[in-house]
Amino acid sequence: MSDEEQKEPLQSSLRVQELIYGLKIGEVMTKKVFAVSRNCTMRDVQQIMKSNGITGVPVVDNRRVVGFVSMNDVMTALEEGGMDEGVIARMSGEVQTLAEEMPLSFAISAFNKFSFRSFPVVSKKNELVGILTFRNINLALIRELSRQLREMEHLHEYPEEHASLELVKVYQLNRYDFENGGKASIEIKKFLKERGISLALVRRVAVASYELEINLVAHSIGGMLSFDINKDRVKISSHDRGPGIDDVEQALTEGFSTANEWIRSQGFGAGMGLPNVKRVSDEFAIQSAVGMGTMIRTVIHFKEEKQNED
């Protein structure tokens, strides 16, 4: 894999995309990590690699990742006769880590962006909790797809009665495609209205969905919006492939916008999008990493009154 050429993002089927957005890095990574401390030598690392069949070892200090020794670093040390040197001298000190609660899609972006074969995974406290290789991703996808296939086969054999208020739908949105921005929201609004959901609730769903749709079109390089509706609630998830939000706090501030002139001339980019979504949602969660993407999940309940106002 080369990090010079910007890789075209893999266009996988919607089902696979759903999976890579739905799975978290923490669920997929290898939890058994071989790490070394600062005072180990390159020979120690090489031993660990050899006996465990791994290609990269994080260097930790008090559970924090301070460096990474790859197979390449070991080979260079071998060539230069530096096997007895400490890892400090030979590791790469700038390590790209991934957070365990990030969606798998972020990891895939990271693999596309950097040439590393594996990434150390850290917890919220920034402590090393695992390691992620492409092998982990492949295995997880195969496992999940097999499970889904089994379910589909089962459903095929025993078709169930479809409840009227049930829908799972995924919409693909492209950058600057204002033409189609709004289509998903209008369809979902009609679906809910036809099923007798109150106007106030339909409107909340419409607001959240429309703002997310426009966000994908105006600010992301492309992504998808998925709806999961049952009798109790509407779950909307928005995922994109980048560029990611630098300061999420700021993006949630009313009036803050990075929209360009053209977007503004279309009546958007007033910095009301995300605050609007948050305001109408019962549950709201956002995750973003620059260069990897943004994921927003929001839930609107049918029954209960909205609980949190901010």
């Binding site: 429309y210 426009i214 009546g267 009301m272």
Partner: peptide, 9 residues
């Protein structure tokens, strides 16, 4: 309003 998000809200 000319701000669609504002209309929306």
């Amino acid at each position: 309003s000319d701000l669609l998000s504002d209309v929306m809200a």
